[in-house]
Design a protein around this nucleic acid. Structure first.
Lengths: 241, 241
DNA sequence: CGTGCCAGGTGCCAT
DNA sequence: ATGGCACTTGGCACG
């Protein structure tokens, strides 16, 4: 039971509202192009003066306001948001509300250039590779990539400071904590590793040394210094060649 | 010198390519809706099987592929990417390339439901409030919000571990490091504060204690424990009331 | 340019 | 629901 795609060029406000209302009740995706102002209030607050933008409303409640620049929408509303479309001051107004967190987005159109709807059918999932999870699998497959004789014992091993990416032992039987990063690592990655090493050291009463190794394609200078200060190691590995 | 907005419903491949090519040379924004497959290769690699999606190309080179769900595009290309539109296997193919980092996105359409272009005029900037910068201004305005007698001395004070949000002194003349977060803070915020306190302690040789205070609306349990372990403080403050 | 860090980050999965 | 963290994170400001 799919509805036909529709498109309107320079529609009247009434026609645009009709289109949007139909699309909302039919769980269609809507795109609107036109001159609008935007007000947001929620986790933060924002206002955006008049300009030509692309507005997208998805059937899952997502709303996006895109300007002519940049990857990110200038304003948006998360999935699960409601949408109300009405006439105000002879213009189309979209009002989207979300609860928990409480957020409200109001888009006031002066002009609508295009309005279009369609019924998306998208059964396929994205297959992504080159992630941290792939790097983890590589290491579990060939532990010697980390160092000769390294033996993984667990992944996601829990500590009081969080879960260790890979926990294992070296040839001398010492505990080894690996923190993995799919790309060049900075100070935050070193701190993360440091937290896990501290926590594990505390858990295994003091004396037995716990080694920590950051595994990433590379590290920044600052991160390198931090590693040295904390007595932590580094191994260069990339998720895919 | 603005071009008119155009829209096509169920265009032929040739018509769609004509529209896109015109839009590319006129620096217009393009939206395409239709059934497509997507392949990405760059910092990572991905494939996406056939489905109905919304594709947006912006004049700054940004490309977005949106499915029917979620705030984020399923695939994209950053600003500054090229775009080539051609016919292949009797379908429209968009090929976008980016250099540094090297990334390539290929979108193969089976069907095109809508194609539309317009010339965006968007002179206004977003005015956002409730940011960390607002929280900083509040504290500089009323330092006693942190604690009675607190005196800010500098913002963005440089240390070997990075820049301190607010550096100051307490009533006893002790150095105080503030790390600000606009929302509930987790372990990473504590580690960040800890890095700055360590660095500053090192710089001011040793004995003089350096205090560290995390300023945020709230902290998680784990973060609270970490603060205690490290002898760091916490003050509850929100960027806007 | 690279480094570091904020973001209305988002999304995923765990408890 | 909250927490902890990865993400093709994106974006900005600064050296």
């Amino acid at each position: 039971m799919t509805d036909s795609p529709r498109t309107l060029l320079q529609p009247t406000a009434a026609a645009a509202i009709g289109l949007v209302d139909d699309a909302l009740s039919a769980d269609q995706l809507v795109t609107l192009v036109g001159r609008c102002r935007v007000v947001y209030e929620g986790r933060a607050t924002s206002t955006l003066g008049p300009g030509d933008r692309l507005v997208v409303r998805k059937p899952d409640g997502t709303m996006l306001v895109h300007t002519d620049e940049g990857h990110q929408p200038v304003n948006w509303q998360p999935p699960g948001s409601s949408c109300d479309c009405r006439l105000a001051d002879s213009g189309v107004v979209l009002e989207s509300k979300h609860e928990n967190p409480s957020e409200e987005l109001i888009i006031r159109f002066e002009t609508i250039t295009h309005a279009a709807t369609f019924d998306p059918n998208d059964p396929n999932e994205l297959a992504l590779s080159g992630t941290e999870s792939d790097l983890r699998d590589q290491i579990l497959e060939s532990p010697s990539l980390v160092e000769p004789g390294f033996e993984p014992r667990a992944t996601e091993r829990k500590t009081s400071a969080g879960a260790i990416d890979i926990y294992g032992e070296d040839t001398d039987g010492r505990a080894v904590v690996l923190e993995l990063k799919r790309r060049r690592a900075g100070p935050d990655a070193v701190s993360q590793l440091n937290r896990y090493v501290d926590a594990l050291t505390r858990e295994r009463h003091a004396d037995a040394t716990v080694r920590g190794i950051l595994v990433a394609p590379s590290v920044t200078d600052r991160a390198h210094r931090l590693l040295a200060e904390r007595g932590l190691g580094f191994v260069s590995l990339s998720p895919t060649e």
